[in-house]
Design a protein around this nucleic acid. Structure first.
Lengths: 380, 380
DNA sequence: ATGAAAGCGCTAACAA
DNA sequence: TTGTTAGCGCTTTCAT
């Protein structure tokens, strides 16, 4: 049995195509068809190093003109039954697949759309939120012929690339997510000559097409729940207030309290991060030791806050009730499990994609606000 | 007039910014900050009706031939300083950006690579694991001119699309993740005429290029830790054993026990899911009530197992020590916090991308196994 | 219904 | 160092 850990250091590469660092589980040497030089995957894996056939070849084989073949491929009218079948047969024989690039060039229609995530930190995408959005987007794109490109416009370089992507018409549309404050991407979107759909209502520009979650409604819901369960000294830890979601959640919180005639000024700024939540909770405890509930604009922050609360000797929900936002998986596993606001993330992705499609087909869809709902668990 | 919109059919928009499709969870209407539409994205972009300039236009403006211009754009040699500057100026004036599609067609080089995730359930991608991989991939792609396409080949339809994507040469290479058992994608990869890099060593095919985490080593590490801390009756809950990772983790577990001369037959099959872990733990408790430790092939399963253990009145780590695998975020928040094996997921993504790049440039890189490490927390 | 011909915007031989 | 000339593979008038 080979010791994997030893083989990890850099080793001179491939001798006759057989690699030193390959360690098959059975300990024997892989017997790969090795050779020196420029073997391509193609040669290795297929006996027939065949090029992809072109439309002309199909046409020739079928004994028709190229345009006839083209018509068949795109099942356009004006082709006799006989010819159509001949072409189809040729396609089958040759294994023809149209070259997407050539088609894109000729039609001036890119075969793809891009989902762009803005932000200052590339690692931001690691938030499961985006993964779920992607699943939604994919679900609707799957029904079309559009491919999905992902653009993490989190660095200057990334933004430049996104701009390039759009300007070069490599993509036929964009879904732009999580702009905050003075995001340069907003301007970029303006200049773009392709349809743009925003995920989350952008702040500084008047967006025409966006889909957003009802952040304000969700926050109000949460706060109302706190009020209904008898809490009276209710605080909040906000998200970044240069983001639409952050603002909306704060507004919802304040509205609910205002309506109930309670004090809504116990507001501590946070940044959506766990540590941010922890320290914000600390500040809150200093400012108002007697608080009995706190609405926190993200589960991550709530987790941090829970930690601070525990350290301060407060029980949850006994001494203070807490509600988070987002319903991340970890929220089920905190102590106590976190009551939180769920937003239909996958649906968000789906609707963005649908809206973009609609836009690309020449319609002018209306903005969309998706409902949020309260998930009762034990922390409030 | 923007070029992407064809039918400009007028649709009444948001009245006072309040959309009809807003549906707050409480059934009441969200009162959004409304205003009558003024500046719209559409109008803004309409101010700039310019078509993207072509290379010919640049050449003409600069008073040089198209090939000279082309040379400048691709900063190729054989261009006089004077001409070069003239072209550059023209580019600047006109705001020229080369058309990526045309270039791809001419060079027969797709400007993108694809990250494909295989699996039976589209929602699988929601696992934060993939998001982290994406971050890694993105990091290295960002340094190149390659765009990233995402392909969730989780349905028949999805797989067909991926195949299409590859055969049409829309993408210049693939990173293929999480094949299991008899995944049809493996065959597909063989036929593909583009370079393929696997994420995780595939099972049924002899892959030449892959990067994997040291699952076996990690499992051994975990098990050895259990042994070292005095546990003697050690069980495991496996992952799917039709996946490379599932198998490797089981092997590592058994190796460690064999080396220590302990019984390594206390094996319960799992499926990587929380519920699966929960029921598997139940079966384990039935089979061997006296067990004092369990190595679990995923944190999700470990969380389920923790639940079962708690219900059965066993304390962790008092009665039984448990170690998970993957180091998911939630592992920090279980009770008690979960000791687990961390794998460098982002690095996995980075290395896959690097390997693909290397492959695409004609090299023949060696497979790569990335180290895993034990994260000590309180459950073991 | 059918095919010839003219592009789409760029690159790459090949001459000059 | 230059410009000219063919393509890349497909779509799309426009005659026939």
């Amino acid at each position: 049995m080979v010791d994997w850990k030893r083989s990890r250091k850099q080793v001179p590469i491939t001798v006759l195509g057989v690699d030193r660092r390959v360690c098959p589980p059975d300990g024997r040497r892989s017997v790969l068809p090795g050779r020196v030089g420029t073997t391509t995957l193609d040669q290795v894996t297929t006996d027939t190093p065949r090029r992809q056939p072109t439309l002309d070849e199909v046409a020739e084989r079928a004994g028709v003109s190229r345009s006839a073949a083209s018509r068949v491929i795109n099942n356009a009218p004006h082709v006799s039954r006989a010819k159509r079948e001949a072409v189809l047969r040729a396609v089958d024989d040759l294994g023809y697949v149209p070259n997407a690039t050539a088609r894109a060039l000729a039609t001036r229609q890119a075969g793809s759309v891009v989902l762009a995530i803005s932000g200052d930190d590339p690692a931001m995408f690691a938030d499961p939120f985006f993964a779920e959005v992607v699943v939604g987007v994919n679900a609707v794109l799957e029904e079309t012929d559009l491919e999905l490109m992902l653009s993490l416009a989190t660095s200057t370089r990334g933004q430049a690339r996104l701009e390039q992507l759009l300007r070069t018409h490599q993509a036929g549309g964009v879904m732009l997510m999580s702009l905050h404050g003075d995001d340069p991407l907003a301007a970029l979107a303006h200049q773009a000559s392709v349809p743009v759909v925003f995920g989350g209502r952008p702040l500084n520009i008047e967006a025409r097409y966006y889909v957003d979650a009802d952040n304000r409604g969700g926050a109000r819901l949460a706060t109302e729940h706190l009020i209904a369960s008898g809490r009276r000294k209710i605080a909040t830890i906000t998200g970044r207030i240069d983001e639409g979601a952050g603002i909306a959640r704060l507004q919802g919180f304040q509205e609910a309290l205002a309506v109930a005639g309670l004090d809504n000024s116990l507001v501590e700024p946070g940044d959506f991060s766990e540590d941010g939540g922890s320290t914000a909770m600390g500040r809150l405890l200093d400012r108002a030791p007697e608080l009995d509930a706190v609405f926190i604009a993200s589960d991550q922050m709530a987790i941090g806050a829970l930690r601070t609360l525990a350290r301060a000797g407060r029980t949850v929900p006994g001494d203070v009730a807490v509600i988070g936002f987002n319903d991340i998986p970890a929220a089920r596993h905190t102590t106590p499990p976190l009551t939180t606001v769920n937003q239909p993330i996958e649906a968000l992705g789906r609707e963005m994609a649908r809206m973009l499609l609609s836009l690309m087909s020449g319609d002018r869809p209306s903005p969309l606000i998706l409902p949020t709902r309260l998930i009762h668990r034990e922390s409030a």
